[in-house]
């Protein structure tokens, strides 16, 4: 499994760089980020000028960073599944898939290459928007390392979104069905991580202790993102803010208590999300392997004969 010299990554980047669609995509992306910046700026100005405003624009200007960052992450999580969901099914539609499968590349390398190329293409967009992002740093108060962590968070989230897309691509024959399925799956996965907490709240509504019901949220990319920005901007956590840990011991189970200590949750959640992404890629690789029994499609015409 070669990342640097993965021929699929090289080919995809070559082809993408030459297409006008990429240039227009980049333009549209920057335009949306710039629009988010202008709207954020207008909103801050309006709040400062309002009756309740304290006239201190500098503190509020720092909030431009999460506004821009979250708007970018939203776009990225929309773009990446589209890119990867149409990758394998697109190869099948283009009738290039069979030839690819007869080469020495393993199915996992192919899947890994497809996800990597989607992540790299998205990073082009993110890097292109850095000048706009830099505007939120002009008044100070934010460390440049925040920008670095933001890029890391984007990579984690785009790998996850990409893996969902590639899994759907391996399951569907047509690109359009794969794209739709990937968004449905992304939504369902988000919902599933909340389900233990909801079930416990409904069945044991009179109990304060949440047990370990928060742990599935480690796999939730949205919770990871929110926690990341809370930690970066305020040093606090969305999961609670009591003492050194985010919970008092009696409120949650032992593992939840340990994992919500300081920044542990963010790093652990990033690891869990990447692990889940890898699992999805493994399943996708298994599904596209033509020698795997479940990958086989019965030729209906022949059966009818």
């Amino acid at each position: 499994m070669r990342l640097q010299s993965n021929p699929i990554v090289k080919k995809d980047l070559q082809v993408t760089a030459r297409s006008m669609r990429f240039s227009w995509g980049l333009f549209a992306y920057e335009a949306v980020v710039a629009l988010a910046f202008l709207l954020g700026l207008h909103s801050i100005q309006a709040s400062v000028d309002s009756y309740y405003g304290d006239g201190n624009v500098y503190q509020d200007l720092m909030n431009l960073f999460p506004v821009l960052a979250i708007s970018q992450v939203c776009i990225v999580t929309l773009i990446v599944p589209v890119m990867t969901a149409s990758s394998i099914s697109g190869e099948k539609e283009r009738q290039t898939f069979d030839i690819m499968m007869t080469t020495c590349m393993s199915p996992l390398s192919i899947v890994f290459g497809k996800v990597s190329s989607a992540v790299l293409r998205v990073l082009f967009y993110v890097m292109g928007s850095l000048p706009v992002m830099a505007l939120s740093f002009v008044v100070g108060g934010l460390s440049w390392s925040v920008l670095f962590y933001f890029v890391l968070a984007v990579i984690v989230l785009s790998v996850f979104a990409g893996s969902v897309g590639i899994l759907c691509s391996s399951l569907c024959k047509r690109s359009i069905s794969a794209v739709i399925l990937s968004f449905v799956m992304y939504f369902v996965l988000n919902l599933l991580t909340f389900s233990p907490l909801l079930v416990r709240r409904i069945w044991y509504w009179n109990e304060e202790n949440m047990g370990e019901c928060l742990l599935p949220l480690l796999f939730n990319p949205n919770v990871f993102l929110e926690e990341f920005f809370m930690q970066v901007m305020t040093g606090e956590s969305i999961l609670g803010s009591t003492g050194e840990s985010n919970f008092i011991r009696e409120d949650v189970g032992y593992f939840t208590y340990c994992f919500t200590y300081g920044k542990v949750w963010v790093f652990l959640s990033a690891g869990c999300i990447l692990l889940l992404a890898f699992l999805f890629m493994l399943i996708a690789a298994w599904k596209i392997d033509p020698l795997n029994a479940s990958a086989e499609r019965i030729p209906i015409k022949r059966i009818q004969k």
């Binding site: 021929p7 070559q14 082809v15 297409s19 283009r94 290039t96 069979d98 030839i99 080469t103």
Partner: peptide, 21 residues
């Protein structure tokens, strides 16, 4: 039946498959 990629030159096509082997 087989397809080819848009925006890929003959030499690059050969390069890609060579790398795949």
């Amino acid at each position: 039946f087989f397809g080819v990629y848009d925006n890929l030159k003959v030499r690059e096509y050969m390069d890609m498959y060579g790398s795949m082997y």
